[in-house]
Amino acid sequence: MLLFFAAFVLLRSARTIIGAAAIAFYWALGSGWLTQPLLDLTQRDAPPGGQTVAPATYAPHTAIVLLGTGTIHDHDGKLVPPRDAYARIAKSADLYAHCKQVSPVCHVIVSGGNPQEHEATEADTYLPYLLRDQVPRGDIILENRSLTTYENARNVRAILHDGYYGSLILVTSAYHMPRALLNFHRFGMQPLPVVSNTRHAKLGFLPRGENLFDAEIALHELIGLAQFHVYREIGWF
């Protein structure tokens, strides 16, 4: 939007074309026809959602890492997980239940601080929902300081005891998984990626707010992937 506005201000002779291009661009995003390719590009390297984790995947000591995705306020003003977080919580609880059938030690590490500066962190907000899904408090480890995916990986690495966990499972959404894996690999971890959910645009003629939200997510991830590689090249990551 800022780029269109700057071009509109600076290129007076082309304002009609710029205005028409801006309208067409946002219509393509809102109607889903441009948003879906962006989502496909973001999610293409993620493993398929809903995959089954074989019992052999669980080691005697297994860690399941649940990555946060923010918090929102519901209609009553209560701080709750957003939609994608519910999917991540449910997937993590399901993995935990299967893990306990074959492994004596299964821990769920919830990683997420408070980048939105709400009244509670992501990890603390998600905790009651894991408890509701029959994950015992004693098997939940809260990492509630990380503000970025890079910090998620760095802080989880600090929690893991060398040689203690024989299996590490990473749970997040399909659009976030490629960037999450890059960061976890950066800290020497090779987790098994398990996708909690995949996003799809709703195609049509009329623009939808949800499609614009999905487009923002896709662009955020694509920029984040580019940022990771740039930071690695200049030595910041």
Score class of each variant (00 low, 15 high):
Tyr150Thr: 11
Gly138Leu: 05
Tyr26Asn: 00
Ser31Thr: 08
Gly166Pro: 08
Ala46Trp: 14
Tyr175Asp: 01
Val80Met: 09
Leu168Phe: 07
Trp27Asp: 02
Arg44Cys: 13
Gly68Pro: 07
Trp27Lys: 01
Val9Phe: 15
Ala22Ser: 11
Leu130Gln: 02
Ile217Pro: 09
Thr71Pro: 09
Asn211Val: 04
Arg154Phe: 15
Thr198Pro: 11
His61Asp: 12
Arg208Glu: 12
His185Pro: 02
Asn183Thr: 03
His118Glu: 10
Gly209Gln: 10
Gln116Trp: 09
Thr148Ser: 09
Phe8Thr: 10
Arg88Tyr: 05
Ile223Tyr: 14
Phe4Arg: 00
Val65Met: 01
Ile109Leu: 00
Gly113His: 04
Thr121Ile: 11
Tyr129Ile: 14
Asp76Ala: 07
Gln101Leu: 12
Tyr96Lys: 00
Pro193Val: 03
Asn114Gly: 13
Gly188His: 10
Phe187Lys: 07
Ile217Met: 11
Ala24Gly: 15
Leu160Arg: 05
Ala123Thr: 02
Ile23Leu: 14
Val194Ile: 07
Ala218Phe: 03
Pro191Lys: 00
His107Ala: 08
Pro178His: 09
Asp74Thr: 09
Phe4Met: 01
Gln101Trp: 07
Gly163Cys: 00
Leu67Gln: 07
Leu11Asn: 05
Gly50Lys: 07
Pro104Ile: 07
Ile217Cys: 11
Ile234Pro: 06
Asp124His: 12
Leu130Gly: 04
Leu79Gly: 03
Pro207Cys: 00
Gln36Leu: 01
His185Thr: 00
Ile17Val: 15
Val171Asn: 00
Arg199Val: 12
Val230Met: 06
Arg137Asn: 11
